[in-house]
Design a protein around this nucleic acid. Structure first.
Lengths: 331, 331
DNA sequence: TAAATTTATCAAAGCGCTTTGGATATTGTC
DNA sequence: GACAATATCCAAAGCGCTTTGATAAATTTA
């Protein structure tokens, strides 16, 4: 039996009779024959691989824990379509070089861009490389067309802040992610818009930017509590920071909700799921795993049809009422 | 100029003169020429890829957050050696099928096995596949030879429990990872040995097993606190669970340290680093990122020399004194 | 029944590299 | 200056598949 027939039988082409296909399949199963990935990829000209380049800040050496869940969402889709997932952690300054190299070597058929900045260079660069990609998040200052999946950050944080104001809070802090990253900027914008619409003016010190770690949540919360007029409510960008904030409140013997209200963005991380009937935290919730799934779908569609017009998918975070928000205590 | 010369110049073979090598390198740089990955892999017979198959429990659908840091450690080493990292999240029951397929298709040159169980089937199976691998953790009930990198779990938890006993605690709970997973079993053994050596007998109810999430830490802590004779100290397997335990204590208006002592295992996760001069938690600490690095090194060595005898690397967790442990309060 | 289609199979080319086994040019030795 | 040794380069084979174009067999049509 010829190679051709075997190949066609295994790959489901119609030019082979059902009878011979069965024979081939049985023989393949019997000898545990699977076409060699490398040869197959060379012959087809496809790598059947999606690249996820996660930038690791040299300074902090930390890996954003939301990747685990994002990738869990994406990975399932890739597997369904026969794609592999290539994960590469690169020092952030090298990131574009890495894309260029992946493209030149054609190691991957597409990439997902994580954590875009407000003025993200990679988008234009990737467009010029002609490598299909999807951005998880958006980049405010670009005119490029590109695929993206994002949460409505501005609106979510506007609503969160608005809720606190409606409860009677007028001194509200924001403990945000690092400055310049697009989602953080949009969240600040939403927060500021709510303040402005309610004629509240607050000093810059009420907004902090840092990597979203527990220690930073703690540290920044202490800084806010040390202000001459400490906030009665805090909005934050991550449930991990929220835990740090909680620790700061404990240390000052302040009670979450009663003394200081907190609203957090909640990515619905699998190991931090706020599952109680009344959630612990009032939160703007949007599943990052779902975002992973959607990004994967969009990327696979783009790879299948490269002439496809770029698409943006905007997810709306739910505002979930928990027990961490109450009217401010009278002083 | 011939293909041969170019290939040799680019790959640093000595059969080419420095002069021509320069010419080739310049020309390559000028045209951004990089050898095609797929062709290269077919020609060399190596995939230059390491597979990490992370099993995702169907029931819980959760991704162990320590992977992010483990992989961060490993990834840097792979990159140095020119290897890619293939990440695949597979439903746990399919895991061996996945290895078999990777081997048959020779998609990867080696794999890392995560979260082995006490009686881990995959080890014998991988040995029979002749695919180089390293286990992150160990498997107690196997006679197979294999590469592994593990923390001294038994000893760490023995020491942690011993410390609590020395402080005067006699009723000590253990909030552990899921039953049957090797590290959890060893930790329970260490805990039980310390109790036994000090002639302390406790009912089975003082040990709980579950996925290491914040909600589970909370839930299991409440269960312990609801026992007729609630523990005055708790040992736990994860800093994420420790946060859940803390929440349970808050709810019962118990103070961490003063009312209930807690020792946690601390993987030194980058977003949960306990950096204070006096750490918040007394902990058995061992960097999972370092484990990732060591695993990668070991795997790369094994790939380079497959006849190499399997090696085990045992890391000793430090016992870090923090402020979450104090002598028990008098009742 | 012969010619025209359709179906089932195959031989060979090609994917873009690395590597083997020369061939040629250069240098060194007596 | 003749020969050996070495340095430099190259043509061609091969990696294990998919795919193209052709052929043979089976079926249909006239």
């Amino acid at each position: 039996m010829s190679q051709t027939t075997v190949s066609r039988a295994l790959n489901g082409f119609p030019e082979v009779s059902e009878k011979t296909r069965q024979v081939v399949l049985e023989a393949a199963a019997k000898h545990n024959y699977k076409p060699n990935t490398r040869a197959r990829r060379l012959a087809t000209g496809k790598s059947m691989t999606i690249g996820h380049l996660v930038s690791v800040s040299k300074e902090y050496e930390l890996v954003n824990p939301i990747f685990a869940d994002f990738i869990a969402g994406a990975s399932a889709r890739y597997a369904q379509s026969g794609y592999d997932l290539l994960l590469s952690l690169v020092p952030d300054e090298d990131e574009f070089t890495s894309y260029k190299e992946l493209a030149a070597r054609s190691t991957v058929d597409g990439v997902v861009v994580h954590t875009p900045r407000v003025d993200e260079q990679r988008i234009a660069q990737l467009n010029s490389l002609n490598l299909p990609f999807v951005v998880h998040g958006r980049s405010s200052n670009t005119l490029e067309k590109y695929n993206w999946v994002d949460v409505n950050n501005e609106r979510s944080f506007f609503r969160a802040t608005q809720l606190l104001i409606e409860l009677g809070h007028t001194t509200i802090g924001l403990i945000n992610g690092i400055a310049g990253v697009d989602f953080a900027v949009r969240r600040t914008q939403g927060y500021l818009r709510a303040l402005k619409e309610n004629n509240i003016e607050l000093a810059d010190a009420y907004v902090t930017h840092s990597e979203m770690t527990e220690p930073n949540g703690y540290k920044n919360a202490l800084a806010l509590l040390d202000l001459p007029d400490p906030p009665t409510a805090i909005v934050t960008s991550s449930i991990i920071m929220a835990h740090g904030i909680k620790r700061a409140l404990d240390e000052r013997e302040l009670k979450l909700g009663r003394d200081v209200s907190v609203i957090t963005h909640d990515d619905d991380l699998s190991y931090f799921r706020d599952t109680a009937a009344v959630p612990v935290y009032t939160a703007t919730r949007s599943s990052v795993r779902e975002a992973g799934r959607l990004s994967a779908d969009l990327l696979l569609k783009t790879i299948a049809d490269p002439s496809r017009d770029p698409e943006g998918i905007l997810l709306d975070a739910e505002l979930i009422l928990g027990s961490s928000t109450k009217p401010p205590r009278l002083r």
